[in-house]
Every structure is written in C-alpha cells, then in structure tokens.
Amino acid sequence: MSETPQGPVQDVFALTVDSVDLVYENGFRALNGATLEVGTDERHALLGPNGAGKTTLFRAICGEISPTAGTIEVLGKSAKGALPAQLIRRGVGRSFQIGRVFETFTVGDNLELAHEARETWPGCSRARRLRPSDEAQAAGHQVAIDFRIEHIYDREASLLSHGEKKILELAMAVIQQPRLLLLDEPMAGMSREETERAIEVLRVVGAERAVLFTEHNMDAVFALADRVTVLARGSVIATGTPDEIRNDPMVREAYLGKRSGAGDFGYA
C-alpha cells in the first residue's frame, strides 16, 4: 500500500491555481482570476457563499471543465487537457458533494473496488491480476477500522445513511493513497456525531497529504484548516490562517453580510 505511482514528492505545492478565469457557455463568469496554492502537507479550506465558484473551481481542478484562462498545476504538472481519471491516477483523490458510492455493492466491496481500481493503474505491479485481490480485502478492512465503519462492512451501500455514505466515500478516496485530496463539503448532511468523527478522521488523513476542502460548518473549518481561502463572486478575496480570516473585515463584509458575530459564519 505504500507505493506511489509517481515516486517521491519534490514540489512545495501539491496544487497551484493561477489567475484562473472560467466563463460558462451561457456567459456566466464563474471564476475571475482565482488564485490559490496548497502545500504538500497542508489542509486548506475553501470558503465562500453559495455561488461563489467553489464547486466550479473544484471541477476545474479535477479536469471536468477547463478554464477559459489561467493555469492549474496538479502535483507538479499542468492539469491542462488531462482527463479526470488521469488526474486521479496522478495522485488526486476526490469526494463528491453528495456521497457517491456504488449502491448495489456492500461497504466492503466499495472499499475493495477503490483499491482494485488503483491496482489497474499503469505501473502498478498488480495490474494484470485476474482474481479479486487479497490485498484489496486486507486494505479494505484496515481502512474500515480506521474510519470506524467496520460494523457496517457487509451492509449494502444503498442502506447507508447520508453521513455514512460520505464517510465511506472519503475512505474510498483514502484507500487509493492520494497525495492531494479534494473534498467538496465532506461534512454536509452529517449528524453532529458523524461530523466529529469525520473531523477526527480528516485530521489523521490530512497529516500526510495535501487536502483542499470546502465546508459550510465553521467549527469543522477552524478545527481542521491550516489555511483558509475565501472566494466571492469567482475571485479570491482573502487567504490566511483561520484566525486572520476570522478577523478580516473584507471577509466579514463579503461572506458574513451584516449578521456577523465573532466566529459565527452564519451557516444555514
């Protein structure tokens, strides 16, 4: 499980987004000179009100849509022209806003599938294997224990709660040993208890890799993030440590509007 397809990490940044514009076909300018950098072992939160361009930026980083202008560099190489699956194979892990798992498979199968998908990547020694792999089974059990979902290992994924699906999805990303983890609202729809568990897990998971995440739950953001970038109307209006962001007057105005109290970002 320790082999990384691309060898050791040399860059300082796992992700650089440089002056990225993105104009949709209908003329809507979703991103306007967006710039941010995520260090190789940094947990970076991306904040912004609805419609600020967070999801658009995520999709651009993942190769689902290409920027109108500007450059995105993922794990030391340009993301230009790369297909989503190719970026994943480069070392990106991602989760979707809605916990997107394989519904007709069990939790364990989902984890094993993620591992087995990785085994098919070029350069992996197990690429030509025919039988479902024992390594995948072992890795699946281990990750299930780490993520505290071993009690539902044999449950069909369609029966999971929303929060469980999101935890499972996160586990599926982590089992692939990504060097850059992109999480779109990892705690959305989770119960308080699940959120606490997710924060704990993300703290461990994020210690050894770069993480960029969007999140509306401010407790989670301040508990996890090393740095925070705030997006408003497609542009970055501030980047800094959580404390700096909390006290930034511009952020308060753009993001919090008039109903701000210290530390309360008014998540509805």
């Binding site: 979707f96 997107r100 479902p132």
Partner: peptide, 24 residues
C-alpha cells in the same frame, strides 16, 4: 468471478464514479 468483471459491474452502477477512482 474476475476482478475485471467486478470493476465492470461498478461502471454499470456509476461510470463517473469509477472514472473518479482512476479507472479507464
């Protein structure tokens, strides 16, 4: 019974999701 078929069945469930696991 192969790993190939298991991954193929996953593409049936959700092909975008499988691509997001790096599978071609």
């Amino acid at each position: 019974r192969t790993r190939f078929t298991r991954l193929l069945r996953a593409t049936r469930d959700d092909d975008v999701r499988v691509a997001a696991l790096g599978l071609n």
